[in-house]
Amino acid sequence: MTQIDASDAGIARLQPEERRHGPTAWERQQRGLTLSLMAVPMAVMALAFVLPLLVLLWMSFGGGSSEGFSLKGYGDLMQPVYLRLLGFTLQLALVTTLACALLAYPLAYLMVNIRSRFGAWMGMVLFVTLWLSFLARTFSWIIILQRRGVVNNLLVNTGLIDQPLELVYNKLGVYIGLIHILLPFMVITLIPAMKAIDPAYVRAALSLGATPGRVFREIYLPLSLPGLVAGSMLVFTLAFGFFITPAILGGGRAPTIVLAIRDQIQTLGNLQLAAATSMLLLVFCLGLLVLYDRISGIDRIYDRGGR
């Protein structure tokens, strides 16, 4: 009478081989492939991003200067003026990001959901504005907004106002220019996130009796949030470091912290102070990023709209 071999050895024979002898040939090959494929991007990351950051950090402590290592750069930063400039720059970046989000969301929604050539044309127009130089677009806003510009001429000639409005060479002008210049970045990051949302979800929710408002709140908005988060971060970072538009449209009434860095480098030649200011900006941005992560989860950027 034969018995079924139910001993330990028998079971072990049915189970996959234990990894007593290290990785299999297949795993080794896969790891080798991953490493060789990653080598170039990793090297680029290290050389183009990590290394310059480390150099900046080194310079902020006086590296490369004739005086040697010190905390002088950070000490010089402890002045109320830098805090005020930082505060204004922060405000500028936050308001710009919020305005871009509010404007870009319906725009992106329309472009994704419209079923006609119009959508493609909208995309074209958006990309064309990205190709134009920031400087040209900044000066174009002057032509539109200035005292004898298009808007003021129209308003004065139609008798709506007596005196031209102050639309540019102040903070208002900076906001208008900055929002216009950064809006396409927000739209472009929103579009793929919205395209990835399966319309079946929306249809299912509607067929189950949810009101359109509720569908938007509970289905569409959360699923498009990754795009909104990514776009906000992009626009915020760009606005935080934007130099030329605030400088020209602000007429001296919207000095940003970047302006201070420019002066530290070009006028004072104080690379240590400039590096320290840049590090402060970096730490600030990283802090906000962490905060953002706590609130909405940065890893959601890599979500695929619930799929």
């Binding site: 000066f139 004898r148 060479y169 020209i248 602000g250 001296g252």
Partner: peptide, 20 residues
Amino acid sequence: KVDLWVEKTSQWDVLIQNRE
């Protein structure tokens, strides 16, 4: 009394041409 602080030299052309 200063209405406008000029950042770039090229701005003068624009300011003059538009009587800003």
